[in-house]
Design a protein around this nucleic acid. Structure first.
Length: 510
RNA sequence: GGCCCGUUGGUCAAUCGGUUAAGACGCCUCCCUUUCACGGAGGAAUGAGGGGUUCGAUUCCCCUACGGGCUACCA
């Protein structure tokens, strides 16, 4: 295979927020394309007009952009294979479907939804709870196989609604080579006569995916495992159209599962367990409901894709932190797992923390500044530059910076009184009074000077510095956390330090 | 029910017939630190079950069990 012309596609339907699993599918496509110097295309599968959600398409593109895996070709940046929305390709599908009917590989079916329902009721049994439209039942239904030529002509000429169904063979096996799973085979007669063209003239996924992958010259078709059962239909279609030689190589990715219980991870699980499932905030235009995204939750895009890539894939060395470039370099479809993986938000946060720790100030500063601003704190960049490096190892999420940084800019609003009060007495009170006086005499307000002053005062009043250091920290910070106290004191300055000590004394004396 | 896919610690997972069955997250202990974290050192914890094949199976095959997906004019 020539590496030059690799073309892969991510083909979501614009029906709502972009799910983790969707992003990972997009990511694997992207990595594969980039590794082989090929093209990554975004195709919008909007053939179900009843499920169309305005804004969802742009949202998907926004998500991919945020992740840093923007497509090379999409509806806004078309290449030579447009249109990139299936709704705009509508005309071509009918001709292909008709072509199949002519060749005898498909047929017209006139059954109404009610009739289909009736059939399913009628043939339903304990042994067969969901009867199919297949070689066993199709002659009992209303279609161009069961009806006379005249009847069919009449229905067609009177514009009676119809669909086109594939006529699955009654014998033989259909083989498929999956890059992850190897050979997979299906009994042809066990697959039903799937609808190819719907009554509204739109194709179903089955027709569209084959026609479009062919006309867009897709070389590798990657999708979630949920598509495996219908893969034989697609393989057959490639054959029936006479395109078998150009059929893309397949790979079906394992599913991302719920952390607890079992089943596919859904948006509901995120709501229930308190973590995001969508890449970015999604505002449903119909319900007005807002669903949290990884971005807004405080994830770095590189951490997000790193985490996703390692959910079901690894390079075999035990390495876990990868830049996007490293992922592109190391990625192979064959090393993707076969089994589904339960999503673990704790591990996801660990990835983010690793990325925060190793990210440069230039990258972090604008993001943090913005988050602080949204929390009512307008932080000075000069101070932020000093303070981010000494607090970032404490943050799993970008939003954690609010708590870790707040006290550098404003006096603490919540003070952990309980950590001090039990051991607070007259002597400590007077120590801090003295400390204020001594501090007033410090000419150069540096961490070293503050520390020296603090310890000398403590010794002078016969305190072990450690006994008064915790109250000092709590006065400045509000709680038992943060970098070295004297460092903090030096950064917030003499005035703020003294003010907070005074406030602390007042509070603890109460 | 049928079809398809899967199954190594709580979770993510390495191993491509021979290992004391890696590593990571989480958890626990200790060290560093008179805060929290980072860092460091330890610890508990894994091959679903049964048959084969083989000198030797986590690894290959079969069966069972379990889990998941699909079974729409949705993708």
């Amino acid at each position: 295979m020539s590496s030059q012309n690799v073309r892969v596609r991510f083909a979501p339907s614009p029906t709502g927020g972009l799910h983790l699993g969707g992003v990972r599918t997009a990511l694997f496509n992207y990595l594969f394309a980039k590794k082989h110097h090929g093209s990554f295309v975004l195709r919008i599968e909007d053939t179900d007009q009843t499920r169309f959600v305005p804004g969802a398409e742009q949202y998907i593109i926004d998500c991919l952009n945020w992740c840093g895996i923007a497509p090379d070709e999409d509806p806004h940046r078309p290449g030579n294979y447009g249109p990139y929305r299936q709704s705009e390709r509508k005309e071509m599908y009918r001709a292909y479907a008709e072509q199949l009917v002519e060749k005898g590989y498909a047929y017209y079916a006139f059954d109404t939804p009610e009739e289909l329902e009736k059939m399913r009721e009628q043939f339903k049994s304990e042994k067969n709870p969901s009867p199919q439209y297949n070689h066993e039942t199709r002659l009992k239904m209303s279609n161009s196989l069961s009806l006379s030529k005249e009847e069919v002509e009449k229905k067609l000429s009177t514009n009676q609604a119809f669909v086109i169904r594939i006529k699955m063979p009654e014998h033989g096996e259909i083989h498929l080579h999956d890059m992850i799973r190897g050979d997979v085979s299906f009994q042809a007669n066990l697959v039903d006569d799937k609808v190819l063209l719907k009554a509204d003239g739109m194709p179903t996924y089955h027709l569209a995916v084959v026609v479009d992958d062919h006309s867009m010259e897709i070389t590798h078709a990657f999708r979630g495992e949920e598509w495996l059962p219908s893969a034989p239909v697609h393989v057959l279609l490639w054959e029936y159209f006479g395109w078998k030689e150009k059929m893309p190589k397949w790979a079906h990715f394992p599913l991302i599962l719920k952390p607890d219980g079992q089943g596919k991870l859904s948006k509901r699980d995120g709501d229930r367990l308190g973590f995001p499932v969508f890449a970015m905030d999604w505002l449903d235009p119909k319900s007005g409901e807002m669903t949290k995204g990884f971005k807004e939750m405080g994830f770095l895009p590189n951490a997000f894709i790193n985490m996703l890539a390692l959910l079901g894939w690894n390079d075999g060395t035990g390495k876990e932190i990868f830049t996007k470039e490293e992922l592109i370099q190391q990625f192979t479809i064959e090393r993707i797992h076969k089994g589904g993986a339960k999503f673990d938000f704790e591990k996801a946060k660990w990835y983010n923390q690793e990325w925060i720790k190793s990210s440069d100030n230039e990258l972090l500063l604008p993001l943090i500044k913005n988050i602080l601003h949204n929390n009512g704190i307008d932080a000075d960049s000069k101070i932020l530059n000093k303070v981010i490096p000494i607090t970032k190892e404490r943050c799993h999420l970008l939003n954690d910076f609010v708590a870790q940084l707040k006290y550098f800019f404003i006096d603490p609003t919540e003070i952990d009184v309980d950590a001090v009060k039990p051991k607070w007495d007259e002597n400590k009170s007077s120590f801090f009074h003295t400390l204020i006086q001594e501090m007033n005499n410090i000419p150069n307000w540096t961490a070293e000077e503050v520390e020296k002053c603090f310890k000398e005062t403590a010794t002078k009043l016969q305190f072990k510095p450690g006994d008064v250091q915790l109250p000092f920290r709590i006065m400045l910070v509000g709680g038992k956390f943060g970098p070295a106290v004297f460092e903090i004191s030096s950064i917030i300055g003499k005035n703020s330090t003294i003010r907070r000590i005074q406030q602390g004394i007042d509070l603890f004396n109460k």
